[in-house]
Every structure is written in C-alpha cells, then in structure tokens.
C-alpha cells in the first residue's frame, strides 16, 4: 500500500508497539524499531528508511541529539522526522523544530493525529 519505510524510535517497548500498531492501521507496514538515538543511527546504516518517528527522552542518546546527528548526515539531512513526546513546553517545541524536526505530536496521541501529521509532512 505505501512505499514508506518508517523508523520508530522510543525507549518504551509499550509505546513502540502502540506506534507500530497505529501505523499498521494507517496502512504503513514496513517499520523498523529502535530503542534510543544511538540504536536508531545504527539501524539507519543498514535499513533504507525514508521516514522517522522519534521520542525525545531516551537514555544513551535522546531524540534531540539523534535528530541533530541525522540532519548532519548527507544521507538523511532531508529525511522527514516526526517527534512524538510528552514534552509540551513551548521552548522545547521550538528547540525541536530548530534542530530539524518536521512536526511534533504530544503524547498521549490519537491514531488520527499520527496519520494526519504523517500526511502533512509527506505533502510538504
């Protein structure tokens, strides 16, 4: 149905499963998972990911550092990134957008919101 290969990054196994389940319902079936920014960067070396959904607060490498590293790489400097996090302080949202996050969802999210934000990013 969709040729999108999505990398879902979250340190919570529960949240990763929920995101994957929600993506399946929205018609996205090619999904790779990572448990933190460092794991995500390693997965990006071997998987042809063309969309990233990431949490912010993660051990070893948080979402902000991960997106900064992503945007610093030639291969992924334009890969769409959707941040899904509990953080909702305005300054945090602005910081995330500054490092190159394309859109931002505050947890807990609804399936409709996740699909809507993916569609918005893909529509440019």
């Amino acid at each position: 149905m969709s040729d999108l290969k999505i990398l879902a990054v979250d340190d919570s196994p529960t949240m990763r499963r929920i995101i994957v389940n929600t993506l399946h319902r929205a018609g996205y079936n090619d999904i790779v998972e990572a448990e933190n920014g460092k794991d995500a960067l390693a997965k990006l070396e071997t998987e042809s990911v063309n969309f990233v959904i990431t949490d912010w607060n993660m051990p070893e490498m948080d979402g902000l550092s991960f997106v900064t590293a992503l945007r610093g790489s030639e291969r992924h400097k334009k890969t769409p990134v959707l941040m899904v996090t509990t953080r909702s302080v305005k300054e945090d949202i602005v910081d995330a957008l500054k490092v190159g996050v394309n859109n931002f969802i505050v947890k807990p999210f609804t399936p409709d919101t996740l699909k809507e934000k993916i569609d918005q990013i893909l529509a440019g």
């Binding site: 979250d10 919570s12 529960t14 949240m15 929920i18 389940n21 929600t22 319902r25 509990t86 947890k107 807990p108 999210f109 609804t110 399936p111």
Partner: peptide, 13 residues
C-alpha cells in the same frame, strides 16, 4: 480493541 491499545500509552507516561 484499538481504543484499549491506544489507552496503554499511560504506561509510558
């Protein structure tokens, strides 16, 4: 069933 799945986000929070 989907609502139950979505509600489990509480565990992360």
């Amino acid at each position: 069933a989907f609502t139950i799945i979505d509600a489990l986000q509480f565990q992360d929070i």
